[in-house]
Amino acid sequence: MAGICAFALVLTGCAAREPEVRTVRVEVPVQVPCRAPVVSVPAWATGSLKKTDSLELKVRALLAERRQRMGYERVLVAAVAACQ
């Protein structure tokens, strides 16, 4: 009987005590979707060339397209860098 009374006292002591409330901050990395703008493909300078066009016209178009591609690549690199 003494064991039951001691057990009842222990349970009463646990019931009377208020639970301890504490705030715990947990830092967890969360994956965020990339919101980079869509890069449109330009109309390339050599896209409208014909076989009958002069060599000078073809060379100028190729040089212009080279500059276009360099600019396009810079925009693509900037879009990729925005997501990292």
Rank of each mutant, 00 (worst) to 15 (best):
V24S: 07
V38Y: 04
S40F: 00
E56C: 00
T46Y: 05
V21T: 15
A81D: 15
K58W: 06
A2P: 04
A6K: 08
F7A: 09
E20P: 01
S40T: 14
P29A: 10
V59A: 13
E73L: 13
C5P: 00
L11W: 08
A36H: 02
V24C: 02
A6H: 03
L55I: 12
T12K: 02
L49H: 12
E27V: 08
C5M: 10
L62K: 15
D53S: 07
A79P: 03
R74A: 14
P19M: 05
K50Y: 06
L11R: 14
V59D: 10
R74P: 00
A82W: 01
M70N: 07
Q84L: 05
L57Y: 03
E27A: 11
V41D: 06
V59K: 12
D53H: 09
G47R: 15
G3P: 02
Y72S: 13
V10T: 02
A61E: 10
E27T: 12
E73C: 01
V39T: 06
T46P: 02
V59T: 13
V30E: 15
A79V: 09
V32L: 10
G13P: 00
G47N: 15
C14D: 04
A15C: 04
V32A: 10
C14H: 04
E56F: 03
C5Y: 02
R17A: 13
V32I: 11
R35H: 09
A61M: 08
R35E: 07
E20W: 04
C5I: 10
A6Q: 11
Q84G: 10
A6G: 04
V39D: 04
A64S: 10
Y72W: 15
R25F: 07
E27K: 12
L62Y: 02
A78L: 06
P19C: 01
L57E: 11
R69I: 01
A2T: 03
A8Y: 06
R74M: 07
E56G: 09
A45S: 15
P19V: 05
I4T: 11
T12W: 04
R66Y: 05
K51Q: 11
E73K: 14
K58V: 08
D53E: 03
V32N: 07
R74Y: 00
S54C: 10
A43G: 04
M70R: 13
